[in-house]
């Protein structure tokens, strides 16, 4: 979910934004620390890369950490999506039978 939320056309995915995106799309509040921990694991696996932005006064002089999916990360996300679609095809069939 974090990897999918990090995939954005504009390269501005950072912790708070990813957390907000997940909360909006899934309706579940996610702790920022959990998002960062997940992103760190994804980075270790080579699925995302991080870059540090400029420190700003609004952030108390602290820099933002931006995350961008790698080619491998995008492929993994695509594979996960296809697997999910294949697995959920049974659900549609079952709903057709019970309807």
């Amino acid at each position: 979910m974090v990897l999918l939320a990090a995939i954005r056309p504009a390269k501005d995915a950072y912790g708070a934004l990813i957390s907000r995106e997940i909360a909006e799309k899934s309706g579940r509040e996610v702790a920022l620390a959990s998002v960062y921990a997940a992103l760190e694991r994804l980075e270790k696996k080579g699925l995302v890369v991080s870059t540090l932005g400029e420190p700003t006064a609004e952030r108390g002089g602290k820099a933002r950490m931006y995350f961008k999916p790698t080619a491998v990360g995008l492929r993994e996300a695509r594979d996960a999506q296809e697997t999910l679609l294949r697995l959920s095809s049974g659900l549609s069939a079952m709903e057709g039978e019970t309807a």
């Binding site: 912790g15 708070a16 620390a33 760190e40 952030r59 820099a63 933002r64």
Partner: peptide, 17 residues
């Protein structure tokens, strides 16, 4: 006490939010 690798960015996000 937070994780060294992202404590600063997380603190920045918290201040911003």
């Amino acid at each position: 006490c937070g994780s060294a690798s992202y404590a600063e960015s997380l603190a920045g996000d918290l201040i911003e939010e």
